[in-house]
Amino acid sequence: MTGNSGFLAIATVIGLVLASPANAEGSERGRGDQLRGVQLAANDGHDHGPDDKSHFEVKSFSTVKEAWSFLATATAEAEKLLADGKVEPIHELAEQIGGAVHTLEDKSDMVTGDAKKKLAAALKQLDKAADELHHSAESNDADAVALNLKKVKGLLPLVQSLYPDGTL
Score class of each variant (00 low, 15 high):
Ala41Pro: 03
Asn140Ala: 07
Asn23Arg: 09
Val64Gly: 07
Glu28His: 15
His91Ile: 08
Ala76Ile: 10
Gly30Phe: 13
Ser27His: 08
Leu133Pro: 05
Arg29Thr: 05
Ser69Tyr: 01
Lys80Asn: 01
Ile10Cys: 08
Lys86Arg: 11
Ala9Tyr: 03
Lys107Leu: 14
Ser161Tyr: 07
Glu92Ile: 01
Glu57His: 09
Leu82Ala: 14
His91Trp: 09
Glu132Met: 14
Leu119Asn: 06
Glu77Ser: 00
Lys124Gly: 15
Glu57Ser: 11
Ala9Gly: 15
Phe56Glu: 06
Gly30Ile: 12
Gly6Ala: 05
Ala144Asn: 07
Val87Lys: 14
Val13Arg: 11
Ala41Cys: 11
Asn140Cys: 13
Thr63Ala: 05
Glu77Pro: 13
Thr167His: 05
Glu79Asn: 09
Lys150Gly: 07
Gly6Asn: 15
Ala72Met: 02
Gly3Tyr: 07
Leu18Ala: 07
Val17Gln: 08
Met110Ser: 08
Gly45Glu: 11
Glu28Phe: 14
Thr12Pro: 05
Gly85Leu: 13
Leu18Asn: 05
Val159Pro: 02
Asp165Pro: 07
Asp143Arg: 03
Ala76Trp: 10
Glu28Arg: 08
Leu40Thr: 04
Gln34Ile: 03
Leu123Glu: 00
Leu155Pro: 07
Lys117His: 12
Asp44Ser: 13
Ala142Met: 09
Pro21Gly: 08
Ala22His: 06
Ala83Leu: 04
Asp127Lys: 04
Ala120Val: 15
Leu82Val: 02
Phe61Val: 02
Gly98Ser: 15
Lys65Leu: 04
Asn140Tyr: 08
Phe56Leu: 09
Glu105Gln: 12
Ala67Lys: 00
Ala74Phe: 08
